[in-house]
Amino acid sequence: MKTPFENVVAEHAGTVLRVCRVLLGPHDAEDAWSETFVSALRAFPDLPDTANVQAWLVTIAHRKAIDVLRARSRQPLPVERLPETPSDLGVPDVDHDLWQAVRDLPDKQRQAVAYHHVAGLPYAEIAKLIGGSADAARRAAADGIKNLRKTYLSGATS
């Protein structure tokens, strides 16, 4: 039984945006979100009824983010320094360092943090997305969080 796609948007829009923010930073997250949901809408009638919709959306976002990162690496200049637009994203200025720290993480750590700690996917699912074993995905997420806390807490009062 297929639900109206609007219900999928209502339920998962926020999570997918948070995942895109971690993968790409606040600046590019909205474009990736839009591309993810347009692709999802296109493919939705063929999605098996038993599918885990959130995991499916995260998989699409994963691919869209890779496209954005590839485009970025071909054109490194314009995104070297993000424009100061965090306020309309609900991210306070003081967290700018955190986003920079997320950006500086190795790809697999950043992805594992996004997919496990933000989207709540199990490590076995994450391994399918980023390659390697579930254990490797678990280690990547743990290392990612450790690295972020090191940077973030050193700059904040605890």
């Binding site: 948007v9 994203l89 700690h117 973030y152």
Partner: peptide
């Protein structure tokens, strides 16, 4: 305590989500 994870997991504001929804309507 404001943990890194709380910030990464902080909800998107309603205004951003409704703007994204309007974009989605237009693209669709």
């Amino acid at each position: 305590m404001n943990d890194a994870l709380d910030v990464l997991g902080s909800p998107a504001d309603a205004e951003t989500l409704s703007r994204l929804h309007r974009n989605l309507e237009r693209h669709a």
